[in-house]
């Protein structure tokens, strides 16, 4: 799994780590049942704090993309493929909305209209 971070970016490091995992899920690099690397190893390899990685894993768990198990560590869940793709698409939608100057409320309205 490729994890990349930009320390100069305004996005928090934990969010960048989580985004890398989401990208891996949507690209098919990570599949159901697969273990993520131990947080300590990721932290060492990126020269960041282990709590940053644990926080990223926590975010991914809250999104339903991974499960945190006592002995097996972080494991990709069955729903990860679909949710990761939605997350990636939503991220691209938000980026595009920012680019053309549309705020969160207006974007939400557009999405609601599409649902209707």
């Amino acid at each position: 799994m490729l994890i990349r971070i930009d320390p100069a970016s305004q996005a928090p490091l934990f969010e960048q780590v989580a985004a890398s995992v989401r990208r891996g899920l949507s690209d098919g690099e990570l599949t159901r049942g697969q273990q993520l690397p131990p947080a300590r190893e990721v932290a060492t390899s990126l020269d960041i704090n282990v709590h940053t990685v644990l926080r990223a894993y926590g975010v991914l768990r809250d999104e339903g993309l991974i499960e945190l198990r006592r002995r097996r560590g972080a494991v990709v869940t069955g729903a990860a493929d679909t949710r990761a793709r939605l997350n990636t698409l939503a991220g691209e939608l938000v980026e595009e909305a920012r680019r053309v100057g549309i705020g969160p409320d207006e974007l939400t309205e557009i999405v609601k209209e599409k649902f209707a």
């Binding site: 799994m1 490729l2 994890i3 990349r4 971070i5 930009d6 190893e41 990721v42 390899s45």
Partner: peptide, 13 residues
């Protein structure tokens, strides 16, 4: 991998 200047990355697999 398209790594940009200033970025840090690791691949574990």
């Amino acid at each position: 991998a398209g790594l940009q200047p200033g970025e840090r990355a690791s691949w574990i697999g």
